[in-house]
């Protein structure tokens, strides 16, 4: 396999560039995106393929949905995840529902990209991790890739998918680099979790950038004699419950690391699924490592301690591994 070293951020642009070259129906729309094409980051593009939109998230998100229904495959760049709320009526009431409501008369191949800017002193209106809200909306697919390779392969899969897909990007991961396939048809399927490290004593399920803390936590636990298996969910809808349940069946213990707020978060859904379907295999209570139910403050002294980190994941595992 031919590869090239890519950061998580450049993997996004590579995926877009390749898919736009492959399929003339793919267009890009969003705020302040003119520079991507002007700087050559997306190659030389027909101006009809990039729409540098006014600050009208509801309007241009809905326009992308209308364009998707009528034959294009738009990628909407909502930039910061907290801005998605302005577009929610169109995403939830139109994109998620219109195929169902029309009895399958239309398809909605649209991608909504947004970056979660937590941990960088941007205060409450720029720091949300709102993926659980969208997990509660049937009709959407929701992904949160955690490596450059997955970002490229899953974003390409999302662009080729005929359903609306929301892509949550984690700004903690932007600078992370790895070798990524240069094959223009390199795809990572939606709906499949990845086992990042095998283990036998405890399963750590990681959502999005929590992988940065889950893997070092597993290292630390190994030094203490505890063998941790690390699963990167990658896709929240569809959620690969089978891979999680199989791992818990082996280890009997589960820690879930999730950047979202605690109540009704991704961790809550994963915990509920394991409690329902894997209860008999559990040797100890499920542990959630999440962001508490408080808004994100500006001061780094207040903000930084809120999120999941290596020490919290290790502590949660220690609590249930004896």
């Amino acid at each position: 396999m031919q590869t090239t070293e890519l950061t998580y951020l450049s993997a996004i642009l590579e995926a877009e560039k390749e898919e736009m070259a492959r399929d003339s129906r793919v267009i890009l729309i969003g705020e302040d995106i003119a520079l991507y094409s002007a700087s050559g980051a997306l190659g030389k593009l027909d101006p009809k393929r990039t729409w540098n939109a006014p600050i009208s998230e509801l309007g241009f998100s809905g326009m992308a949905i209308g364009a998707a229904i009528t034959g294009l495959r738009p990628i909407v760049d909502l930039t910061i995840a907290s801005f998605v709320y302005l577009a929610c009526d169109q995403i939830i009431n139109q994109a998620a529902k219109i195929r169902f409501m029309t009895g399958g008369q239309v398809r909605v191949p649209v991608v909504f990209r947004m970056s979660m800017w937590h941990g960088s002193s941007n205060a409450a209106q720029h720091s949300d991790r709102p993926y659980p809200m969208f997990m509660n909306v049937p009709g959407l697919k929701v992904i949160a890739p955690a490596t450059p390779s997955d970002m490229k392969g899953m974003l390409k899969s999302a662009i080729r998918d005929d359903d609306p897909v929301i892509v949550f990007e984690d700004n903690d991961l932007w600078a992370k680099k790895e070798a990524v396939s240069t094959d223009p048809d390199f795809l990572v399927p939606l709906g499949k979790a990845a086992v990042r490290r095998e283990g036998t004593d405890v399963t750590i399920v990681s959502v999005a950038g929590c992988l940065l803390h889950a893997l070092p936590a597993a290292e630390q636990l190994a030094k203490e004699g505890t063998s941790a298996e690390v699963i990167d969910v990658r896709s929240l809808v569809p959620l690969d419950r089978a891979t999680i349940l199989a791992s818990v069946a082996k280890t009997g213990r589960l820690v879930i690391a999730d950047y979202a707020h605690r109540t009704a978060g991704a961790a809550a859904e994963i915990a509920a699924s394991v409690a329902e379907e894997g209860f008999a295999t559990l040797k100890a209570p499920i542990q959630r490592v999440t962001t508490p139910d408080v808004q994100i403050p500006f001061s780094p002294k207040l903000e930084r301690p809120l999120y999941p980190n290596k020490d919290k994941i290790v502590a949660a595992a220690r609590k249930i591994v004896h």
């Binding site: 267009i27 393929r49 326009m63 209308g66 364009a67 998707a68 229904i69 294009l72 169109q90 009431n93």
Partner: peptide, 18 residues
Amino acid sequence: IVGGGIPLATGAGLSAHV
């Protein structure tokens, strides 16, 4: 949803143009 169809109609126009 009152007004909800307006963005879809506008997007269909964008699509025809593209």
